[in-house]
Amino acid sequence: MSINRQFSLPNCVLILEGLSTAPEGTTLDSRPELSVLTRFECYFAREKQALVGGLDLLQGLVAATNDCVQACISGVPSATKRGDAVTKVELKPVDGGFELTVPEDLLSKKLSDFASGAETASVQLHLSAVQLFDLMEAIDQLAADQQTLPSLKPQIRPRTRQETLSRSVLVEKSAPIALGTAGVAIAAAALFFVPAPKVPEPKEPEASPPSTLTQPSPAVPPTAVPPAVPPAAPPPSP
């Protein structure tokens, strides 16, 4: 028996269609558990095209919404993409809102069905903050519903430094170091070609008559002092 669940908000409607794995008659609850998803639809207000797919699309949408909302509340942007198949759906802030990108392979209704001439293999939707909130709230209501895909839980947890450190921050942090190193290298290279200044060697002082004013240098050892010239013989007295 097919089970339909709908989570409606003013700007976003999620419709889930699936099956229950519980045998008939075992659940006393009138609302059986939807444990296997067969079809997922997501409608946005003022958007003509609906996103129709399966569990991959739903999981991708949940992960992308989770990341984007957390980055929006904290103001700390996410780091790199994880490259996982689940996170193919991208939701990133752009000027004046958010841009949702869903690749074609997650959609059961191909792009050729939507509009002719579409060259990109993905659907791009522009969402406002209120639309994103409605998408987030629909997902949170879905996650809080124990009778609908109980295994689907958004990971609401603080992101680590590695997960939040964006490339731009790394570039900003490494720029001063790189600039300083490059400056020193360029200066060293330029100075390498500058000839060393010639130091004029002090000329040998010419032999000059000893002056009575010159004092012997204290650094000169006393032994280096030339022996005193013996005084000339006294002139003959008149």
């Binding site: 909302v69 957390q70 980055a71 929006c72 509340i73 904290s74 700390v76 903050a129 209120v130 909130f133 987030m136 709230e137 949170d140 209501q141 996650a143 809080a144 958004p154 609401i156 947890r157 603080p158 992101r159 680590t160 430094r161 997960e163 939040t164 450190l165």
Partner: peptide
């Protein structure tokens, strides 16, 4: 606005320690 939802408290609390 994002704090007004069903999981608003958890979302705000987690975002405060991002990074």
């Amino acid at each position: 606005l994002f704090c007004t939802g069903t999981a608003g408290v958890e979302r705000l609390w987690a975002s405060l320690f991002d990074g």
